[in-house]
Amino acid sequence: MSYREMSAWVMGALTAALGLHYLSTYLDAAQGAGGAPPAAATFIPYVIVVVAASITAQIVLAILAPKRADTPPDERERPLLDRAGHWAGVIQAVLAVTALVTFMHREDGALLFHMIVGGLILAQVAEYALQIILLRWGS
């Protein structure tokens, strides 16, 4: 398994786990306060945890494979990573437009907030999944 693929597996799993945590927080809030957007006091620490966990994961990967971590993507990997990023951007745009259309119909700002954040997380997970698929089977 290449370093890029290993990194995509780790970061994808981490992002998916944090996304599921966000979803469970949203579902809890939806049952209580009608799905209100999270308070800054809980959302900002969540974002900090996401960033810190991502940096920690990258540091651990770099310690495990220092030489490979230092090497930039090669000529085969670069266009594949670009393609994964492109399609993740498309997914994010579709989800953002879906959130906006939903807002136009339901006029629920809290739902718009959750759909945008959820869309960001889903698009990121999709990018890592596409990286794994393309690095393994694409060329």
């Binding site: 290449s2 090669d74 000529e75 085969r76 990997e77 060329s139």
Partner: peptide, 10 residues
């Protein structure tokens, strides 16, 4: 040659 083992395999 400056590529990964996976690229050589491909």
């Amino acid at each position: 040659i400056g590529v990964t083992r996976q690229t050589v395999v491909a």
